[in-house]
Design a protein around this nucleic acid. Structure first.
Length: 504
DNA sequence: AAAAAAG
């Protein structure tokens, strides 16, 4: 059997790999590393959770042992589609490069330039970047690309799609054509392959699993739901509560606004939940992800910013609140669970509107996905009226209806109140809800920050813009959240929220 | 039809 020692890696790298507890490479690692060490171009395709990152990090470390970086002239460059992924790759360099003295610089947006400038000035052996910030540094003249020997494009299918391709082409043009180029991706559709071939020279193609095949250890189910958001939220809550082995879960939405809405709803229902999407400030993104990794948050509502590559070792469940429009994203999303041979479960809420996306997903993964309890046809008719429960008058609702459109929600999270205090369907769930962590991050959209009135921080720091409390949501509040307790308005003391969610 | 990536 092939071991890491057979692949031609340097002693320093091998000893770090051994210290990390690995002896047997994954197929993508065994396939790619020898060619990478020969300075061949590589097109590596493997499903998520199979060790793609190490298959370029390890050979790069070996190759970098010869030579030294000069100021502002990085020797290698790695491009990543999200900041979190870039940070994760940087951690890999720390881990496997502990016997080296290499300068690794992480160039991502949303954080200050100063540290990054210093590292560039010192001479970076490895530059790990998101495209925008790299170009920003370049335009400021902080960077010379003429010394780059290795270019890695990770999540290549993502990096070569419509939004990213102009940046990638610009960057690739700045780098000498004598470079070595490594492509890694979980999926590689033909039109992307065609683009990729423009960047690669006589690449060695290493494909270790059928592209787009979901990890075998993941149990996949569809769950029929009516289309309205509040109906979907109710279905989701029931689904989450019904899971007996739910350790933690990522819940994907297609839109950032829906991430914010669903987060808010789940939080109000007493779940231990965080949120992650690209309009949150970087500090909050980092904190949310860290809390989820640490187990301080049980649920993470996320956009597709979290769909790819994020390595959270023990995610037990993935829920798709929305069916992903691009079927490849389905594969990426459910790839967050069942990693490294563990078992996992992936549930996808499906409404009538989603049927064609569902078909595309089944076609892509080449199998039929079972319905959890009856398909769309067996769904009971939609609830007729939203007015079965008595509506509260505006004073009980904190007088919100008296506020004009402009005023509404300004500086207010619109979080209503702790609906679960009187809501019988909130905590009778048998789910081991981890206590909501005291994560209070600055999560409001940056551009909205200025217009925030400083209020108490429990409300100011939310993953949604303060003024997105739409009429539509408010209309359905009774369905979603039950009666709002009277008396506090929006000013529920934090300890009460905690007390509410502690009861199981 | 959406997210991500610069500020």
């Amino acid at each position: 059997m092939t071991t890491f020692a057979d692949l031609g890696l340097s002693q320093k790298v091998l000893s770090a790999v051994t210290d990390a507890g690995y002896t047997i490479p994954t197929p993508i690692q065994a396939g790619a590393i020898p060619f990478a060490l020969e300075r061949r171009d590589i097109c590596g395709i493997a499903q998520t959770g199979t060790g793609k990152t190490a298959s370029f990090v390890l050979p790069m470390l070996s190759l970098l042992e010869k030579g030294r970086a000069r100021a502002r002239m990085p020797r290698t460059l790695i491009l990543e589609p999200t900041r979190e992924l870039a940070a994760q790759v940087a951690e890999n360099f720390e881990k496997y490069g502990k016997n080296h003295r290499l300068n690794v610089a992480l160039l991502i947006g949303g954080v200050s330039f100063e540290d990054q400038d210093r590292k560039l000035e010192r001479g970076a052996d490895v530059l790990i970047c998101t495209p925008g910030r790299l170009l920003d540094h370049f335009e400021r003249g902080k960077l010379l690309m003429s010394g780059v020997e290795i270019l890695v494009i990770d999540e290549a299918d993502r990096m070569l799609d419509m939004g990213f391709i102009p940046d990638i082409e610009r960057i690739a043009k700045m780098i000498p054509f004598t470079r070595q180029t490594l492509f890694f991706s979980a999926t590689m559709p033909p039109e992307i392959q065609k683009l990729a071939d423009r960047f690669l020279q006589n690449p060695e193609r290493i494909e270790v699993a059928k592209p787009a095949s979901a990890a075998k250890t993941v149990t996949q189910r569809f769950v029929a739901s009516h289309s309205k958001d509040y109906e979907k939220r109710a279905v989701l809550r029931e689904l989450v509560r019904a899971q007996t082995e739910l350790k933690n879960a990522i819940i994907f939405c297609n839109r950032k606004k829906d991430v914010a809405d669903l987060f808010r709803s789940l939080e109000r229902h007493g779940f231990s939940v965080g949120a992650l999407h690209g309009d949150m400030d970087q500090r909050s993104r980092t904190m949310m992800l860290q809390s989820f990794r640490d187990g301080n948050l049980q649920l993470l509502v996320a956009s597709d910013v979290a769909a790819r590559g994020l390595d959270i070792p023990d995610v037990s469940h993935v829920f798709n609140f929305d069916v992903p429009i691009h079927s490849e994203d389905y594969v990426h999303r459910i790839g967050r669970t069942g990693r490294a041979g563990r078992s996992g479960a992936a549930f996808t809420l499906v409404t009538k509107r989603d049927t064609k996306f569902v078909d595309a997903i089944e076609k892509l993964i080449g199998e039929k996905i079972e319905w959890q309890s009856g398909d769309l046809n067996s769904l009971p008719p939609a609830e007729e009226s939203k007015d079965e429960r008595p509506r509260r008058n505006s004073r009980e609702r904190g007088g919100r209806d008296d506020r004009g459109e402009k005023d509404r929600g300004r500086g207010r999270g619109g979080r209503g109140a702790a609906g679960h205090k009187s809501d019988n369907d909130v905590q009778d769930n048998g789910v081991d809800v981890i206590q909501a962590a005291p994560v209070k991050a600055d999560i409001v959209k940056n551009e909205r920050k200025a217009e925030q009135k400083p209020q108490n921080n429990a409300r100011n720091n939310r993953p949604y813009p303060a003024n997105d409390d739409s009429r539509d949501r408010r209309r359905h509040r009774d369905h979603d959240d039950g009666p709002t307790p009277v008396g506090f308005g929006d000013d529920i003391p934090a300890f009460m929220l905690i007390a509410g969610s502690a009861k199981v």
